[in-house]
Write a protein that binds this DNA or RNA. Sequence first.
DNA 1: GGGCTCATGTAAGTGGTTACATGATTAT
DNA 2: ATAATCATGTAACCACTTACATGAGCCC
Lengths: 181, 181
Amino acid sequence: MDLSKTAYVILGMLRLGRRTGYDIKALVDVSTRFFWAASYGQIYPELKRLEDLGLVEGEAQAQGGRQRRAYSLTAAGEHELRSWIASGGPLHFELRHEGMLRFFFADAATVDEQVGLLRTIRAQHEGVRDQLRSMHPESEAEKPHGFPLRTLEFGIAYNDFIASWCEGLEAELTQATAARS
Amino acid sequence: MDLSKTAYVILGMLRLGRRTGYDIKALVDVSTRFFWAASYGQIYPELKRLEDLGLVEGEAQAQGGRQRRAYSLTAAGEHELRSWIASGGPLHFELRHEGMLRFFFADAATVDEQVGLLRTIRAQHEGVRDQLRSMHPESEAEKPHGFPLRTLEFGIAYNDFIASWCEGLEAELTQATAARS
DNA sequence: GGGCTCATGTAAGTGGTTACATGATTAT
DNA sequence: ATAATCATGTAACCACTTACATGAGCCC
Protein backbone atom coordinates (compact mmCIF):
# COMPACT_ATOMS: atom_id res chain seq x y z
CA MET A 1 0.00 0.00 0.00
CA ASP A 2 3.01 2.26 0.67
CA LEU A 3 1.50 5.32 2.29
CA SER A 4 3.37 8.30 3.66
CA LYS A 5 3.87 8.40 7.43
CA THR A 6 1.55 11.38 7.60
CA ALA A 7 -1.17 9.26 6.04
CA TYR A 8 -0.89 6.98 9.05
CA VAL A 9 -1.18 9.94 11.37
CA ILE A 10 -4.53 10.65 9.73
CA LEU A 11 -5.67 7.04 9.88
CA GLY A 12 -4.63 6.86 13.52
CA MET A 13 -6.51 10.00 14.44
CA LEU A 14 -9.61 8.83 12.61
CA ARG A 15 -9.52 5.65 14.62
CA LEU A 16 -10.77 7.71 17.55
CA GLY A 17 -13.93 8.51 15.62
CA ARG A 18 -15.35 10.72 12.90
CA ARG A 19 -13.22 13.82 12.35
CA THR A 20 -12.82 16.73 9.93
CA GLY A 21 -9.45 17.77 8.52
CA TYR A 22 -9.57 20.70 10.86
CA ASP A 23 -10.13 18.40 13.83
CA ILE A 24 -7.21 16.22 12.82
CA LYS A 25 -4.88 19.18 12.64
CA ALA A 26 -5.98 20.29 16.10
CA LEU A 27 -5.45 16.79 17.48
CA VAL A 28 -1.99 16.51 15.96
CA ASP A 29 -1.03 19.87 17.44
CA VAL A 30 -1.75 18.69 20.96
CA SER A 31 -0.35 15.18 20.68
CA THR A 32 2.02 13.87 18.00
CA ARG A 33 3.29 17.30 17.02
CA PHE A 34 6.62 17.15 18.84
CA PHE A 35 7.68 13.94 17.12
CA TRP A 36 5.53 14.14 13.99
CA ALA A 37 4.01 17.41 12.85
CA ALA A 38 1.46 17.92 10.07
CA SER A 39 0.00 20.96 8.31
CA TYR A 40 -3.25 21.63 6.45
CA GLY A 41 -1.30 21.56 3.23
CA GLN A 42 -0.73 17.87 3.82
CA ILE A 43 -3.84 16.83 5.63
CA TYR A 44 -6.51 17.94 3.18
CA PRO A 45 -4.97 16.48 0.02
CA GLU A 46 -4.04 13.32 1.90
CA LEU A 47 -7.62 12.83 3.09
CA LYS A 48 -8.75 12.87 -0.52
CA ARG A 49 -6.10 10.36 -1.52
CA LEU A 50 -7.04 8.08 1.34
CA GLU A 51 -10.67 8.28 0.32
CA ASP A 52 -9.74 7.33 -3.25
CA LEU A 53 -7.90 4.35 -1.83
CA GLY A 54 -10.95 3.35 0.19
CA LEU A 55 -9.18 3.68 3.53
CA VAL A 56 -11.37 6.47 4.81
CA GLU A 57 -14.88 7.57 4.08
CA GLY A 58 -15.96 11.20 3.89
CA GLU A 59 -19.42 12.42 4.64
CA ALA A 60 -20.60 15.94 3.84
CA GLN A 61 -22.04 17.57 6.94
CA ALA A 62 -22.72 21.10 5.81
CA GLN A 63 -24.70 23.09 8.35
CA GLY A 64 -26.38 25.99 6.62
CA GLY A 65 -23.90 27.58 4.25
CA ARG A 66 -20.89 26.28 6.15
CA GLN A 67 -19.07 23.45 4.50
CA ARG A 68 -17.88 20.56 6.60
CA ARG A 69 -16.70 17.13 5.64
CA ALA A 70 -16.15 14.54 8.34
CA TYR A 71 -14.18 11.37 7.68
CA SER A 72 -14.22 8.00 9.30
CA LEU A 73 -12.02 4.94 9.03
CA THR A 74 -13.17 2.06 6.82
CA ALA A 75 -12.45 -1.58 7.64
CA ALA A 76 -9.64 -1.49 5.07
CA GLY A 77 -8.27 1.64 6.69
CA GLU A 78 -8.29 0.08 10.13
CA HIS A 79 -6.52 -2.97 8.76
CA GLU A 80 -3.89 -0.83 7.05
CA LEU A 81 -3.26 1.07 10.27
CA ARG A 82 -2.90 -2.07 12.36
CA SER A 83 -0.56 -3.79 9.96
CA TRP A 84 1.65 -0.68 9.81
CA ILE A 85 1.93 -0.57 13.61
CA ALA A 86 2.85 -4.25 13.79
CA SER A 87 5.11 -4.42 10.73
CA GLY A 88 8.86 -4.72 11.11
CA GLY A 89 11.63 -3.02 9.20
CA PRO A 90 13.62 0.15 9.90
CA LEU A 91 11.72 3.08 11.33
CA HIS A 92 12.14 6.54 9.90
CA PHE A 93 14.12 8.60 12.36
CA GLU A 94 15.27 12.10 11.73
CA LEU A 95 16.49 14.86 13.96
CA ARG A 96 17.28 18.41 12.91
CA HIS A 97 18.71 20.35 15.80
CA GLU A 98 20.18 23.71 14.93
CA GLY A 99 21.26 24.34 18.49
CA MET A 100 23.37 21.20 18.54
CA LEU A 101 24.77 22.16 15.15
CA ARG A 102 25.88 25.57 16.40
CA PHE A 103 27.25 23.91 19.48
CA PHE A 104 29.26 21.53 17.35
CA PHE A 105 31.03 24.49 15.77
CA ALA A 106 31.23 26.51 18.97
CA ASP A 107 35.00 26.17 19.22
CA ALA A 108 34.86 29.28 17.05
CA ALA A 109 32.97 31.27 19.72
CA THR A 110 33.82 32.94 23.02
CA VAL A 111 32.93 31.25 26.31
CA ASP A 112 30.17 33.80 26.89
CA GLU A 113 28.67 32.96 23.54
CA GLN A 114 28.98 29.25 24.23
CA VAL A 115 27.14 29.60 27.53
CA GLY A 116 24.57 31.87 25.91
CA LEU A 117 23.93 29.27 23.22
CA LEU A 118 23.46 26.51 25.78
CA ARG A 119 21.03 28.70 27.68
CA THR A 120 19.03 29.34 24.52
CA ILE A 121 18.85 25.65 23.72
CA ARG A 122 17.89 24.85 27.28
CA ALA A 123 15.19 27.52 27.39
CA GLN A 124 13.64 26.12 24.23
CA HIS A 125 13.47 22.55 25.51
CA GLU A 126 12.27 23.69 28.92
CA GLY A 127 9.53 25.56 27.12
CA VAL A 128 8.37 22.47 25.26
CA ARG A 129 8.69 20.36 28.39
CA ASP A 130 6.54 22.76 30.40
CA GLN A 131 3.99 22.96 27.63
CA LEU A 132 3.73 19.19 27.54
CA ARG A 133 3.65 19.07 31.31
CA SER A 134 0.67 21.40 31.34
CA MET A 135 -1.20 18.92 29.15
CA HIS A 136 -0.51 16.09 31.55
CA PRO A 137 -3.50 15.21 33.71
CA GLU A 138 -2.68 15.93 37.35
CA SER A 139 -5.84 14.46 38.72
CA GLU A 140 -6.71 10.81 38.20
CA ALA A 141 -9.01 9.65 35.44
CA GLU A 142 -8.58 12.54 33.02
CA LYS A 143 -8.46 12.50 29.28
CA PRO A 144 -5.42 10.78 27.74
CA HIS A 145 -4.95 7.13 28.55
CA GLY A 146 -2.67 4.32 27.56
CA PHE A 147 -0.21 5.00 24.80
CA PRO A 148 -0.99 8.63 24.08
CA LEU A 149 -0.31 9.31 27.76
CA ARG A 150 2.93 7.35 27.59
CA THR A 151 4.16 9.35 24.62
CA LEU A 152 3.27 12.56 26.42
CA GLU A 153 5.35 11.41 29.37
CA PHE A 154 8.13 10.50 27.01
CA GLY A 155 8.02 13.99 25.54
CA ILE A 156 8.36 15.54 28.96
CA ALA A 157 11.27 13.28 29.92
CA TYR A 158 12.91 13.74 26.52
CA ASN A 159 12.91 17.52 26.62
CA ASP A 160 13.95 17.50 30.23
CA PHE A 161 16.87 15.26 29.38
CA ILE A 162 18.20 17.67 26.80
CA ALA A 163 17.61 20.67 29.07
CA SER A 164 19.49 18.96 31.88
CA TRP A 165 22.36 18.15 29.60
CA CYS A 166 22.61 21.83 28.69
CA GLU A 167 22.48 22.85 32.31
CA GLY A 168 25.32 20.50 33.22
CA LEU A 169 27.55 21.85 30.48
CA GLU A 170 26.71 25.45 31.34
CA ALA A 171 27.91 24.84 34.87
CA GLU A 172 31.05 23.15 33.63
CA LEU A 173 31.89 25.97 31.26
CA THR A 174 31.30 28.74 33.76
CA GLN A 175 33.32 26.92 36.43
CA ALA A 176 36.22 26.33 34.09
CA THR A 177 36.23 30.03 33.26
CA ALA A 178 36.01 31.07 36.89
CA ALA A 179 38.90 28.77 37.79
CA ARG A 180 41.09 30.35 35.15
CA SER A 181 40.68 33.89 36.51
CA MET B 1 22.71 37.01 4.61
CA ASP B 2 20.02 34.39 5.27
CA LEU B 3 21.69 31.10 4.43
CA SER B 4 20.23 27.64 4.88
CA LYS B 5 21.39 25.71 7.92
CA THR B 6 23.17 23.29 5.65
CA ALA B 7 25.22 26.19 4.30
CA TYR B 8 26.52 26.69 7.82
CA VAL B 9 27.41 23.03 8.06
CA ILE B 10 29.63 23.57 5.04
CA LEU B 11 31.13 26.76 6.40
CA GLY B 12 31.78 25.05 9.70
CA MET B 13 33.48 22.08 8.11
CA LEU B 14 35.63 24.32 5.95
CA ARG B 15 36.80 26.13 9.05
CA LEU B 16 38.90 23.04 9.78
CA GLY B 17 40.81 23.60 6.57
CA ARG B 18 40.66 23.18 2.82
CA ARG B 19 38.16 20.51 1.81
CA THR B 20 36.40 19.11 -1.26
CA GLY B 21 32.65 18.52 -1.41
CA TYR B 22 33.39 14.84 -1.06
CA ASP B 23 35.44 15.48 2.08
CA ILE B 24 32.66 17.56 3.59
CA LYS B 25 30.13 14.80 3.03
CA ALA B 26 32.44 12.29 4.69
CA LEU B 27 32.98 14.60 7.65
CA VAL B 28 29.26 15.21 8.09
CA ASP B 29 28.63 11.46 8.02
CA VAL B 30 30.92 10.87 10.99
CA SER B 31 29.97 13.90 13.03
CA THR B 32 26.87 16.07 12.63
CA ARG B 33 24.90 13.44 10.77
CA PHE B 34 22.71 12.31 13.64
CA PHE B 35 21.41 15.80 14.31
CA TRP B 36 22.00 17.40 10.91
CA ALA B 37 22.48 15.25 7.81
CA ALA B 38 23.51 16.43 4.34
CA SER B 39 23.71 14.81 0.90
CA TYR B 40 25.76 15.48 -2.22
CA GLY B 41 22.66 16.87 -3.82
CA GLN B 42 22.82 19.72 -1.36
CA ILE B 43 26.51 20.11 -0.79
CA TYR B 44 27.75 20.63 -4.34
CA PRO B 45 25.19 23.23 -5.41
CA GLU B 46 25.54 24.99 -2.04
CA LEU B 47 29.32 25.22 -2.42
CA LYS B 48 28.80 27.06 -5.70
CA ARG B 49 26.30 29.42 -4.14
CA LEU B 50 28.64 30.13 -1.24
CA GLU B 51 31.43 30.85 -3.67
CA ASP B 52 29.22 33.30 -5.57
CA LEU B 53 28.51 35.00 -2.25
CA GLY B 54 32.23 35.22 -1.53
CA LEU B 55 32.01 33.13 1.64
CA VAL B 56 34.19 30.32 0.33
CA GLU B 57 36.91 30.11 -2.26
CA GLY B 58 37.35 27.17 -4.58
CA GLU B 59 40.61 26.11 -6.08
CA ALA B 60 40.91 23.57 -8.86
CA GLN B 61 43.31 20.81 -7.89
CA ALA B 62 43.03 18.35 -10.72
CA GLN B 63 45.63 15.60 -10.57
CA GLY B 64 46.02 14.06 -13.95
CA GLY B 65 42.60 13.60 -15.46
CA ARG B 66 40.87 13.49 -12.12
CA GLN B 67 38.89 16.57 -11.28
CA ARG B 68 39.06 17.94 -7.80
CA ARG B 69 38.03 21.26 -6.40
CA ALA B 70 38.99 22.14 -2.86
CA TYR B 71 37.33 24.98 -1.01
CA SER B 72 38.44 27.13 1.85
CA LEU B 73 36.74 29.70 4.02
CA THR B 74 37.18 33.39 3.21
CA ALA B 75 37.32 36.07 5.90
CA ALA B 76 33.71 36.92 5.09
CA GLY B 77 32.77 33.26 5.43
CA GLU B 78 34.44 32.96 8.80
CA HIS B 79 32.65 36.08 9.96
CA GLU B 80 29.30 34.76 8.75
CA LEU B 81 29.86 31.49 10.58
CA ARG B 82 30.81 33.16 13.84
CA SER B 83 27.91 35.57 13.82
CA TRP B 84 25.48 32.70 13.16
CA ILE B 85 26.83 30.75 16.14
CA ALA B 86 26.52 33.74 18.44
CA SER B 87 23.21 35.12 17.15
CA GLY B 88 20.04 34.77 19.20
CA GLY B 89 16.54 33.89 18.10
CA PRO B 90 14.67 30.59 17.97
CA LEU B 91 16.64 27.57 16.84
CA HIS B 92 15.23 25.20 14.26
CA PHE B 93 14.25 22.00 16.01
CA GLU B 94 12.51 19.13 14.33
CA LEU B 95 12.05 15.51 15.22
CA ARG B 96 10.47 12.85 13.02
CA HIS B 97 10.23 9.61 14.91
CA GLU B 98 8.16 6.93 13.24
CA GLY B 99 8.65 4.53 16.14
CA MET B 100 7.12 6.99 18.57
CA LEU B 101 4.31 7.60 16.11
CA ARG B 102 3.47 3.92 15.89
CA PHE B 103 3.75 3.72 19.64
CA PHE B 104 1.28 6.58 20.01
CA PHE B 105 -1.31 4.54 18.12
CA ALA B 106 -0.36 1.22 19.70
CA ASP B 107 -3.60 0.95 21.64
CA ALA B 108 -4.75 -0.71 18.42
CA ALA B 109 -2.16 -3.49 18.72
CA THR B 110 -1.68 -6.63 20.81
CA VAL B 111 0.71 -6.63 23.75
CA ASP B 112 3.15 -8.79 21.79
CA GLU B 113 3.14 -6.27 18.99
CA GLN B 114 3.60 -3.43 21.44
CA VAL B 115 6.60 -5.08 23.02
CA GLY B 116 7.97 -5.97 19.60
CA LEU B 117 7.68 -2.36 18.52
CA LEU B 118 9.52 -1.13 21.60
CA ARG B 119 12.25 -3.66 20.96
CA THR B 120 12.64 -2.45 17.39
CA ILE B 121 12.86 1.17 18.49
CA ARG B 122 15.34 0.25 21.19
CA ALA B 123 17.50 -1.79 18.82
CA GLN B 124 17.69 1.13 16.43
CA HIS B 125 18.81 3.61 19.07
CA GLU B 126 21.20 1.12 20.59
CA GLY B 127 22.67 0.68 17.15
CA VAL B 128 23.29 4.40 16.72
CA ARG B 129 24.57 4.68 20.28
CA ASP B 130 27.09 1.87 19.75
CA GLN B 131 28.16 3.33 16.45
CA LEU B 132 28.79 6.69 18.08
CA ARG B 133 30.50 4.98 20.99
CA SER B 134 32.90 3.27 18.62
CA MET B 135 33.93 6.70 17.33
CA HIS B 136 34.66 7.93 20.82
CA PRO B 137 38.36 7.99 21.64
CA GLU B 138 39.06 5.48 24.42
CA SER B 139 42.67 6.45 24.83
CA GLU B 140 43.65 9.99 25.81
CA ALA B 141 44.68 12.60 23.29
CA GLU B 142 42.95 11.23 20.22
CA LYS B 143 41.26 13.06 17.42
CA PRO B 144 38.06 14.89 18.36
CA HIS B 145 38.42 17.64 20.94
CA GLY B 146 36.27 20.29 22.52
CA PHE B 147 32.83 20.76 21.12
CA PRO B 148 32.77 18.03 18.51
CA LEU B 149 33.66 15.59 21.28
CA ARG B 150 30.92 17.01 23.48
CA THR B 151 28.30 16.57 20.77
CA LEU B 152 29.49 13.02 20.23
CA GLU B 153 29.03 12.36 23.92
CA PHE B 154 25.64 13.97 23.75
CA GLY B 155 24.70 11.67 20.89
CA ILE B 156 25.66 8.64 22.90
CA ALA B 157 23.73 9.79 25.97
CA TYR B 158 20.76 10.84 23.85
CA ASN B 159 20.36 7.51 22.10
CA ASP B 160 20.98 5.67 25.31
CA PHE B 161 18.25 7.69 26.99
CA ILE B 162 15.68 6.68 24.40
CA ALA B 163 16.82 3.06 24.45
CA SER B 164 16.54 2.96 28.23
CA TRP B 165 13.07 4.43 28.10
CA CYS B 166 12.04 1.64 25.74
CA GLU B 167 13.60 -0.96 27.97
CA GLY B 168 11.70 0.29 30.99
CA LEU B 169 8.38 0.17 29.18
CA GLU B 170 9.09 -3.26 27.75
CA ALA B 171 9.59 -4.57 31.27
CA GLU B 172 6.43 -2.89 32.46
CA LEU B 173 4.34 -4.29 29.64
CA THR B 174 5.63 -7.85 29.97
CA GLN B 175 5.16 -7.75 33.75
CA ALA B 176 1.63 -6.47 33.48
CA THR B 177 0.83 -9.29 31.06
CA ALA B 178 2.44 -11.94 33.26
CA ALA B 179 0.47 -10.71 36.28
CA ARG B 180 -2.81 -11.06 34.40
CA SER B 181 -2.27 -14.71 33.54
C1' DG C 1 -19.85 45.45 14.30
C1' DG C 2 -15.65 43.11 15.36
C1' DG C 3 -12.97 39.46 16.53
C1' DC C 4 -12.47 34.59 17.35
C1' DT C 5 -13.08 29.94 16.03
C1' DC C 6 -14.55 26.60 12.63
C1' DA C 7 -13.71 25.04 8.16
C1' DT C 8 -11.63 23.98 3.45
C1' DG C 9 -8.51 24.38 0.32
C1' DT C 10 -4.44 25.55 -2.93
C1' DA C 11 -0.14 27.62 -5.08
C1' DA C 12 4.33 28.57 -4.55
C1' DG C 13 8.26 27.63 -2.50
C1' DT C 14 11.80 25.15 0.53
C1' DG C 15 14.76 21.78 1.82
C1' DG C 16 16.05 17.71 1.13
C1' DT C 17 16.82 12.64 -0.78
C1' DT C 18 17.59 9.16 -4.34
C1' DA C 19 19.26 7.51 -8.21
C1' DC C 20 21.89 7.95 -11.79
C1' DA C 21 25.89 9.18 -14.93
C1' DT C 22 30.72 9.58 -15.33
C1' DG C 23 35.35 8.63 -14.74
C1' DA C 24 40.11 8.56 -12.48
C1' DT C 25 43.11 6.43 -8.88
C1' DT C 26 44.44 3.03 -5.63
C1' DA C 27 44.64 -1.28 -3.29
C1' DT C 28 44.21 -6.36 -3.60
C1' DA D 1 41.65 -7.63 -13.40
C1' DT D 2 38.62 -5.88 -10.43
C1' DA D 3 36.81 -3.87 -6.59
C1' DA D 4 36.88 -0.04 -3.59
C1' DT D 5 37.51 4.64 -3.00
C1' DC D 6 37.90 9.36 -4.66
C1' DA D 7 35.45 12.78 -6.97
C1' DT D 8 31.75 15.74 -9.20
C1' DG D 9 27.56 16.63 -10.51
C1' DT D 10 22.40 16.74 -11.84
C1' DA D 11 17.44 15.57 -12.66
C1' DA D 12 13.54 13.87 -10.77
C1' DC D 13 11.17 13.42 -7.07
C1' DC D 14 9.25 13.80 -2.21
C1' DA D 15 7.58 15.65 2.01
C1' DC D 16 6.43 19.39 3.97
C1' DT D 17 5.64 24.54 5.12
C1' DT D 18 3.94 29.12 4.37
C1' DA D 19 0.96 32.19 2.91
C1' DC D 20 -2.98 33.21 1.09
C1' DA D 21 -8.06 33.14 -0.23
C1' DT D 22 -12.64 32.36 1.25
C1' DG D 23 -16.45 32.34 4.10
C1' DA D 24 -19.85 30.81 7.85
C1' DG D 25 -21.13 30.76 12.77
C1' DC D 26 -20.61 32.36 17.48
C1' DC D 27 -19.79 35.48 21.36
C1' DC D 28 -19.31 40.06 23.31
